[in-house]
């Protein structure tokens, strides 16, 4: 349904093409207007980040003054320490640390597993079609649009039947399942764009399914795999729904713990600790974003459907 609709934007989204809009003249009122609009928009986008940072560095008495945008009069790092180490979720007061470790475990396991699986899918769908493989792919793409709620409950029952519900392998399987539609589409489109002679030559030389995969296709798919890694790392780190439902108390990811810390505090609401915790949770995907730069743009354009 969407593979056609997606491909043009996917290929063009690198942003490397020259702008083709109206030609700029010297500094006119129009030009000033353009920059004014962009700067105001940029301020709107930066405002929450600014508020997060300054709030996290203020003491509570200063926050109660209600000067949301002001720089802290007295910088304190205590909220950061507390958010990391001692903030409470219900009765446990271990801060975000355990959540961070859980998210790290979940992400480090789910990203390679889901990508390897999808890579083999895309490879098989491009070069080794069998009866019904296209139908399976169609179902998978349908799966990209299904509201998760329709499959969640039977999946809970299924996973608990095999003893994997609320375990680390369980949540890895869940991320692999729900990442599969878009990643398979990504890799299938990539392999389909390779010259077919490449595959034919290897076949003539007598190479089989795995040999061609490991010796020819795997080394060639490094660029698209980087896009997939960025997509999955941010997607899995930012996941909330699957973490709440499938991870269980032992493997609760950082986003779920953050939400618990912020929304279930009894007594005094410590806004500075909350904001420090929020920044800490956002830090990993933000780092991925700023390090990967244009790769990230390519990744979201390609994998946008996952939303």
């Amino acid at each position: 349904m969407t593979s056609e609709a997606l491909s043009p934007a996917t290929t063009g989204a690198s942003g490397a093409v020259e702008p083709r809009g109206a030609k700029p003249k010297k500094l006119t009122i129009g030009r000033v207007g353009v920059y004014a609009f962009l700067v105001i928009a940029a301020l709107f986008f930066l405002m929450p980040l600014w508020v997060m940072i300054v709030t996290s560095l203020k003491g509570l008495p200063e926050i109660r003054l209600g000067q949301l945008f002001n720089l802290p009069a007295q910088v304190t790092f205590e909220p950061w320490l507390k958010a990391w180490d001692t903030a409470c979720t219900g009765r446990d007061c271990n801060g975000l640390k355990p959540g961070f470790m859980n998210s790290l475990k979940i992400t480090l396991l789910s990203v390679p597993v889901s990508i390897v699986v999808a890579m083999i899918n895309g490879y098989a769908l491009s070069f080794w079609k069998y009866k019904g493989s296209d139908l399976l792919f169609g179902i998978l793409i349908f799966g990209a649009f299904v509201p998760y709620q329709v499959v969640i409950y039977p999946l809970i029952i299924g996973l608990s039947k095999v003893g994997l519900f609320a375990t680390l392998p369980g949540i890895v399987i869940v991320h692999t399942i729900f990442g599969m539609p878009i990643l398979t589409l990504l890799f299938r489109n990539f392999f389909a764009s390779l010259p077919p002679e490449l595959f034919k030559a290897a076949r003539v030389d007598g190479a089989g399914f795995w040999q061609i995969f490991f010796q020819i296709m795997l080394p060639m798919s490094v660029p698209i795999a980087i896009v997939a890694v960025i997509l999955q790392t941010t997607g899995i780190w930012n996941d909330f729904l699957f973490g709440t439902v499938f991870a269980g108390r032992e493997n609760m990811p950082m986003t779920v713990q953050l939400n618990n810390i912020v929304t279930t505090t009894t007594g005094v609401r410590e806004y500075n600790v909350n904001m420090a915790a929020t920044i800490l949770t956002a830090a990993v995907p933000l780092a991925v974003y700023f390090i990967s730069g244009k790769w990230f743009v390519r990744g979201i354009a390609a994998g946008a459907v996952k939303g």
């Binding site: 928009a41 986008f45 780190w237 930012n238 909330f240 986003t255 953050l258 974003y289 990230f296 979201i300």
Partner: peptide, 11 residues
């Protein structure tokens, strides 16, 4: 304009 998308919807 794009950095908010890197942050989770919970954040």
């Amino acid at each position: 304009f794009l950095y908010p998308f890197a942050m989770s919807l919970v954040v």
